[in-house]
Design a protein around this nucleic acid. Sequence first.
DNA 1: AATATTTTTTAGGTTTGTCTAAATTTTATA
DNA 2: TATAAAATTTAGACAAACCTAAAAAATATT
Lengths: 220, 220
Amino acid sequence: MKYSVSEENYIKAIYHLQQEVDRVNTMLLASTLETKPASITDMLKKLKTKRLLDYKPYYGFKLSAEGNRVALVIIRRHRLWEFFLAEKLKFSWEEVHEMAEDLEHVSNKKLIDKLDAFLGYPKFDPHGDPIPDQDGKIQKEEHVLLSELKVKAQGRVTKIKSHSTKIMDLIAHQQMNIGSKITVKKVFEFDESMEIVIDGKTTKNISKQLANNIFIANDK
Amino acid sequence: MKYSVSEENYIKAIYHLQQEVDRVNTMLLASTLETKPASITDMLKKLKTKRLLDYKPYYGFKLSAEGNRVALVIIRRHRLWEFFLAEKLKFSWEEVHEMAEDLEHVSNKKLIDKLDAFLGYPKFDPHGDPIPDQDGKIQKEEHVLLSELKVKAQGRVTKIKSHSTKIMDLIAHQQMNIGSKITVKKVFEFDESMEIVIDGKTTKNISKQLANNIFIANDK
DNA sequence: AATATTTTTTAGGTTTGTCTAAATTTTATA
DNA sequence: TATAAAATTTAGACAAACCTAAAAAATATT
Ligand SMILES: [Mn+2]
Ligand SMILES: [Mn+2]
Ligand SMILES: [Mn+2]
Ligand SMILES: [Mn+2]
């Protein structure tokens, strides 16, 4: 089955919201897609008749098994393109999301599988999010917040929680990046700020708020 | 200015038809786009109000200077993606056109320019058609039909006239390709068939009809 | 020159995806 | 529990891009 750009954007948005809440509701989806609630209701009916959605009026909704499968196909396309843009075309990882938002709707399966091969079957996109494979399987990476690490613990930065420009600014300035190796040197009781070493080179002090937004995979 | 997928497809189709005829007409465009004449008229009016088209009812139409500029942007995108698909993803050159038909509408300029750089600023797409540069300039390659070459002449295959599967079949079987070096060994008067050497290795006999569909750049 | 044929445009509809405004249902509050 | 507020759906409209059928204009044929 082939779905329209709009349908795909709805499916993907519902999938992402479901990672946070169990049953998505109209208002929430309207605000993330920046449309009006009435438009959401229209699309919900359509997705329901296409059997992509479990939906009872007034009771919220969730993707069907098939809806989930479709969502993962779209997310696979999105993240592979993001990886391509960052890795091959040398875009910074803040720039890639918007372009991938369009590229994800080019839906030729053979194209995506060949792209995957060309990129060397990457497991994570530039933001550290997992890339579903051909069967929709995603590799779960166990990561913890940097703020939860104890002194002497170390690991690699896998993901940033929020992608706001404010946080990006700070992180870029600190010369941290996805993949950077982090070692915790000290944790100060006063404000829970940390002293860390980045890639075995530079030593930095970071606030609790910042450490709360950085995910780390335990290196071992 | 940003144009819809439909608008872009119309603009590009008009551009291509103008390479053959001076003023395009409704029927011709309808048949190449596989739509009805009434739909063409609707779009012509829209393109006219957007100043992309010179159009007087009943008198045929042609792209304005701006329309031409836009067409070349779309063709640049199309051919760069084709080059990417063939060169990097290892698609055969018969497969790339259809996928490029979708990718050409992803219109982020920085993306296309970076793709261009990544590919090494190629001048010709896998079919041998020239790729417009950032300013819409296209490199004119002087090529002649293989059938016009005399004995001992040599050159490289730059382009195939028709892209029908029937011709593709034959050409693939003869192990010819864009870029193959061709040397004419003999021309038989009886049926004007030729004996040629491909890439200095294999010797083949080809019919006048086939030679009439293969463009050659004079190597020198 | 008159008539027939072809081409093009116009008129009026349909589908998709959006919207506003109003009605309905659910949830919260007094 | 009655009422107020919020969330959701319905009703009706609109733009984009298509369509069919009919009218109008251009071109070809007798
Ligand atoms: Mn993204
Ligand atoms: Mn999207
Ligand atoms: Mn092409
Ligand atoms: Mn296209």
